[in-house]
Write a protein that binds this DNA or RNA. Structure first.
Lengths: 154, 154
DNA sequence: GATTGTTACCCACTACTACCCACAATGTTA
DNA sequence: TAACATTGTGGGTAGTAGTGGGTAACAATC
């Protein structure tokens, strides 16, 4: 059963094999529109995780980055850190992508891996690190979180 | 006799079978508009229950989530916590949906299950837990309840 | 040009899920 | 009251999804 095109929700656990291959949930593959079918951009996430965008979503980010002026110190750094660690990728016939060792190291990935749908992208996590991260966040800024949940009706 | 389209009211009790399958009340199935006939999004509720949205309702949530920027720490967490535990689903020829083991665990579901109409979605409860929850709530915040009466006329 | 290493493709096995059918219980109509 | 339709529940099975390993094709290095 597929959802809207290019929209990712849900959580899936997979194993990262010795070749650095990682399965993409078949539900996510199905929700990719034809043009995207085989192309992703894999990037470093802002938390200790990996972000995987379908090509269409990434192109929007690129457009937004183009609008930032390199005169601003902040903008410059933002562009650099976003573009630097991103790279295009495809999946193989079995639906797996290959993760670069540097990204595996950044996300602290082991054999067991969690893939989370984030609407416009997927996140790849070490499940233990995610749990620690979420617990830590709960203690912090819960007011901002509360405020946000008043705006969005579930 | 059906009510407005995509509106759920009433309470029904069913049994969850060994395969995690749960019947959807036929009244609810009837009240689904054609486009939604076979698609739901099942998500973790804010109380210890499961939320089931018809697709149209969920798409509104999705649209709101799409407006949030992943640069904000708070927004990121909100998207993650909302999208993570949600998954699209259809019902089978007998009108049942399948509940994922992690959600069954979260809601503390046993064989006996209560489905409650919540206007824009349905809630799935362990009847014992709901009763306990409601009793506990009665003692607390009756002020908040009072305040609400200024907004809604019954 | 030979050697090494990496990448991508192919095949095979396992386990699960989604579909199918069957039947009981209840409600409805003639 | 009998016949039928609808609703709720249970279990078997074929097809698909996830995983691992082998090998050919290609690039890089000497």
């Amino acid at each position: 059963m597929t959802l809207s095109k290019n929209t990712f929700i849900g959580e899936f656990s997979y194993t990262l094999d010795s070749k650095g291959r990682l399965n993409i949930p078949s539900k996510f593959r199905q929700s990719l529109s034809k043009d995207n079918k085989e192309t992703f951009v894999i990037a470093r996430g802002l938390d200790q995780c990996i972000w995987v965008y379908p090509l269409i979503e990434w192109k929007q980010i690129e457009n937004n980055l183009r609008k930032l002026s390199s005169i601003s110190n902040t903008h410059r750094r933002f562009i650099r850190n976003t573009a630097r660690y991103a790279s295009p990728s495809t999946y193989d016939k079995q639906g797996r992508i290959i993760l670069h060792p540097s990204l595996i190291k950044y996300a602290g990935l082991d054999k067991e891996v969690l893939i989370i749908g984030m609407i416009n992208k997927m996140e790849i996590w070490n499940p233990d690190l995610l749990e620690k991260f979420e617990n830590k966040q709960d203690e912090l800024n819960s007011e901002a979180y509360e405020e946000l949940s008043n705006k969005i009706i579930l």
